[in-house]
Design a protein around this nucleic acid. Structure first.
Length: 346
DNA sequence: ATATGGATCCGCCAAT
DNA sequence: CAATTGGCGGATCCAT
């Protein structure tokens, strides 16, 4: 076996809390779901172990990872690939540090498995951290762990989850959300970011950055831009006049896009324009403008090397501070950090 | 980090 | 009368 990872510098690894100890992580997988959403996040933890090992710290620091399923046996059978769970949840004994719940299965059998869901609920309450990757949020919701909490998942499911569990505050935009000890993430790749956040909590920023740097060599964030564009374009208005406004907005992000100005161009009063726009598009003018600016800024941060300040002004933010606030508010992460994690150009 | 002024949103009612 | 549009005011969000 070749050496898995060779550190690029001789700088010693800085660990925030050298007495953190080894953490027991139980990853819960269900049959007939997407294995990427298990393998990716677990890979972050494994990479952390490797990096700690390189620093000679793996005796005392790192993750002990177990994968469990509703039943032992085949967990995934997908395009000829099979993953086999050696343990079922019934065999989990003793305290767990972090519970990691992978995506939901296509036919939702796992949701109807009362013993399994009850175990999730009991365990999720006790552990220090309970995390869901994307549609794993359904399992947490069914287990009652998300009641009256903020949660996120991939935007394509957000509406459905909200409808089925009305007392959850579903927010589709953030990369991930931490509410007390319950963490949810917006999709498979967002699950990686969630895991990086856990690594940072446990062992500090230096370790998390090394892990991220190591992993982006292999994991170019796919579909992020496409996803957000789909989100914007899925809301195209029927009325030509409103569609024109939408097109004009994305072509003139750095100009005045106040409701008043937009209304003038459509020969409507601001009140009526706002009302018609909201009915046709599904979001208010102000929110749509913010969404468009945010999307463009994300794209530039990922795909260009423009300084953050230039990105801000190009995308219509008055100051880079304004953009920073918008990023933290909507995505839960600041622009510089966003670029650090998602930039595709080396 | 907080305070303040302006923009935006939304319900309500009046006018068209 | 029903449906659309416009204006007003308060609550909230956001930028500075």
């Amino acid at each position: 076996m070749p050496e898995p990872f060779r550190p690029t510098t001789d700088k010693p690894l800085t660990v925030s809390d050298p007495s953190a100890g080894r953490r027991r992580v139980v990853a819960v997988a269900v049959p007939k779901s997407d294995p990427l959403e298990l393998i990716g996040p677990v890979e972050v933890l494994v990479t952390t172990n490797i990096i700690l090992q390189q620093a000679g710290l793996s005796e005392t620091l790192g993750y002990d990872i177990e994968v469990v399923a509703p039943q032992t046996g085949t967990v995934f059978s997908w395009n000829g690939m099979k993953l086999v769970a050696e343990k079922s949840f019934k065999q989990v004994r003793g305290p767990v540090d972090t519970l990691l719940v992978q995506a939901l299965d296509w036919n939702e059998e796992s949701l109807r498995d009362r013993k399994f869901v009850d175990w999730l609920g009991r365990t999720g309450k006790k552990v220090r951290r309970c995390c869901a990757i994307c549609t794993g949020a359904y399992l947490l919701a069914e287990a009652g762990l998300l009641e009256n909490r903020r949660a996120t998942l991939h935007w394509a499911w957000a509406e459905d989850l909200q409808a089925r569990y009305p007392n959850i505050q579903v927010e589709p935009d953030p990369i991930f959300i931490k509410d007390d000890h319950i963490y949810t993430s917006a999709g498979a790749t967002a699950g990686l970011d969630l895991m990086l956040a856990l690594v940072e909590e446990d062992f500090g920023r230096d370790v998390a950055l090394k892990v991220a740097q190591f992993m982006v060599l292999f994991l170019k964030r796919p579909g992020n831009q496409a996803q957000f564009s789909a989100q914007l374009s899925s809301n195209l208005a029927e009325k030509d006049s409103i569609r024109d406004v939408q097109a004009w907005i994305v072509d003139h992000l750095d100009e005045d896009l106040s409701v008043e100005t937009l209304a003038e161009n459509t020969n409507m009063s601001p009140r009526n324009f706002s009302r018609v726009f909201t009915r046709e598009v599904g979001t208010t003018p102000g929110r749509y403008v913010e969404q468009a600016r945010l999307e463009r800024a994300r794209q530039y941060l990922e795909e260009s090397k423009l300084p953050v300040g230039r990105v801000a002004s190009t995308c219509g933010y008055g100051t880079s501070e304004a953009m920073r606030l918008a990023f933290v508010r909507r995505l839960g992460i600041a622009p510089r950090e966003y670029r650090q994690r998602f930039a595709s150009a080396r």
